[in-house]
Amino acid sequence: MLVVFAGLMIYATLHLPERGNPEAPMHQELNLVGKPVAGAYFIQNAYRDAATPNMVTVVLADYRSVDTLGEVIVVFTAGVACFLILRRRETDDS
């Protein structure tokens, strides 16, 4: 059962378009305004804009950097909340 399912998934994967190919059908879609979707722009211009081969890094830290700043603030807030809830006060020490 598991092998059959895995085989089905692998067979389906073989026909997916190449990763990072701007000619793939999903990058040919038009958004609501009628322009190409943002992913096609990122693929074609990531290296030219930031001289960085890894386009995921460029999207994460440059195009969408404010989003990433929010993620860091979420992590930091989790740390501060744990600090405030769990940390033993120094005056309680023996």
Binding site: D49, A50, A51, T52, T57, V58, A61, D62, S65, T68
Partner: peptide, 14 residues
């Protein structure tokens, strides 16, 4: 582009 490269690096360190 190189300035952006180092900007991304600084942000990743943070």
């Amino acid at each position: 582009p190189i300035v952006r490269y180092y900007g991304i690096l600084l942000v990743e360190f943070g």
